[in-house]
Design a protein around this nucleic acid. Structure first.
Lengths: 198, 198
DNA sequence: TTTTTTTTGAAACAAATGTTTCAGAATTGA
DNA sequence: TCAATTCTGAAACATTTGTTTCAAAAAAAA
């Protein structure tokens, strides 16, 4: 991708940090709502540097979405490799995820991007599909293992339950944007957990 | 709002038809993605006419979202006033809604708008809240009456179930944008109905 | 008809958009 | 050290943006 070939000056700015900053702008304002000035201001670089190293606005957005989903992947991996039981891990995840919805101020970038640009930009769509598949895998593994270990008793297909929760999830964000009602989200989360255990 | 006071020329274009056209553009491209040229081209009016009768871009968008939610309200009213039983109405609605997700090509404008602009535009947010409340009412009425008539047996709170479905709903749109898998949506819908009946 | 008021169409508006240019600064290897 | 190469900053680029202007057209009331 970037070869520090033979000679010349080195890139001055921290690319990873710049992507992080750009991601925050896109996350908040959306793809069309974020201007290049917004972005370069936050990244603290000149547009010439941006176009030299990363590329145009679309390319930058792709990188930001990729970064966003990478962070999620890391979180899921960490949780899967903990020494807690599957069901414990699942419940903890759901509760923490509710916390993210309630305390976060900008909803979920993956969801926002799916609705705003996934239909127009195939590369973004592919990244979001991969992210969604990993979310599904995460839930599916936990539910399946919880059943195997007898923590959950259900005659329902774990694949269906994973799909169902994976999508249910999105609606909680919308609900919270409109109603800003933490209790409502918590009740729905509790209901979902209850469905698993009976 | 508009008084055909005493004298002068009449408005030439059909405002309702123009709003409908503008709505379709916003629906497809989003608020920031739709330019005034896009809009006036579709509406087949000059921008001076737009600014004279309706107002600026924000005002136009508000009217379009209002129009979108009006159409939904009409649909719910019609269904509530049918001579079918509550449960029958509910199941029919869910199935038709699945059909809209699967066959429609632009997801749901209310959902897209919630994620793109509800956090920035209080007027849009208020319209979407009212719409969401009506959707809740619709589901709540049907579930409550179905229980009363013995069509549904559940020890769960109808209010919770209505909330739950009302938000679940949104995730099915995202799922379909990414995976374009009709079976997946149908299975989730069937699972939801099954939850109600047992 | 004439007068009065309003809408329309085309053009123009300033500001903002995404992107490129290029001279000079900086860093590397020789 | 010097030559070679690359990055940076500021400015400029052509478009596109949302919005306004205004003369001409149209229609209602006098």
């Amino acid at each position: 991708m970037y070869l520090c070939s033979v000679m010349g000056r080195n890139v001055e700015f921290d690319e990873a940090a710049a992507i992080q900053k750009a991601m925050e702008v896109f996350w908040k304002k959306g793809y069309n709502g974020a201007s290049l000035r917004d972005l370069t201001d936050a990244m603290q670089i000149n547009s010439s540097s941006l176009y030299n190293t990363i590329g145009d606005k679309q390319e930058l957005f792709v990188r930001c979405v990729q970064h966003y989903t990478d962070l999620r992947r890391q979180d899921w991996d960490k949780r899967l490799n903990s020494n807690k039981s599957p069901f414990e891990t699942l419940v903890e995840y759901i509760h923490e995820a509710v916390g993210v919805i309630i305390n976060g101020e900008d909803s979920c970038m993956a969801v926002k991007s799916a609705f705003e640009v996934a239909t127009n930009d195939q590369r973004v769509k592919d990244i979001l599909i991969a992210d969604n598949d990993r979310a599904y895998q995460f839930l599916h593994d936990l539910i399946r293992n919880a059943i195997k270990m007898g923590e959950i008793k259900t005659d329902e297909d774990p694949a269906l339950l994973a799909d169902y929760f994976n999508s249910t999830w999105t609606g909680w964000y919308e609900s919270y944007i409109l109603h800003k009602d933490p209790i409502k989200i918590k009740r729905m989360a509790d209901y979902f957990i209850k469905q698993l255990t009976k």
